[in-house]
Amino acid sequence: MIVFGLMSCTFLGYLAASGFYVAALYDRRRELWARGAVYFGWTAQTVYLFRPIVILGVISTMSLYDWMAWFVWVVTGTFLVIQHRRQYAQVGSFLIPIVFLLWVGSQGLNHPAGTQRPSILVGWLGLYIAVATASYVVFLLAAIFGIMYMEKERELKKKQIRLFYYQLPPLEDMDLIASRLIMVGVPLFAVALYFGAQTVKLVWGSYWAWTAKETWSFITWLVYLVYLGLRWILGWRGHRSAIYAMLAFIVVMFNFIGVNLLFPGPRGY
């Protein structure tokens, strides 16, 4: 009963926040309501996620769906921290609806419940999960700035200014923020790969086992490395950079959804 209540609160909070954040594009005063709704949903989710750890001493991270819930929780938490900075104020209008869909997609689906002792999170695998999650958050934010850049640029190019012209930050700023995020994400993901390799060593005995997960993670990392290379060496900016950041995140999505569904590995996600 409590679990259902918490789920409902999370659902309603994130749903309301999505609506209010989109409305905030039209009327900035809605942002206050949106923020309230996010805090509400996120708090409910926090209680939902930490309740089994506190009461039972287990953590529900066995399935991909559970991990998605944690991902949503980290993304939203990160957003709540950075939203106070002016450049990030409008991110919510794009990020929160996506977060809501991710959450509904992962939680609404019927999936087997599984639990684990939290001790598993202490080892290499735990480190891998934590750091990889952090870098995915960074990559998602970069993709969001890519979307925002494209939307505003489209209005400016077509000379039909509407919402985004008025509401979104300057093009150059969004371009810079996206590239800086990826600049942070690439070394972070390299660390995740290192922890991942340590995990693989424990399971297979060698650092590199050519598993689908490992290979795709490496490809993801390369894709972002190439992004930086294109900017630094070929001077890519703005439009192309924004498209690249968006497409690159599709690779990330495939890495943590596609690969896990198509090639089930020892971790389950």
Binding site: R29, K152, Y166, P170, D173
Partner: peptide, 26 residues
């Protein structure tokens, strides 16, 4: 302070600056 009544340029001179700011920021 609470509304955008005084925002957004209404003359060509201001509009040029405003458009530049929308693209470049600083």
């Amino acid at each position: 302070g609470e509304t955008g009544i005084s925002h957004n340029a209404l003359s060509v001179g201001h509009a040029v600056v405003e458009l530049a700011k929308k693209v470049f920021g600083d």
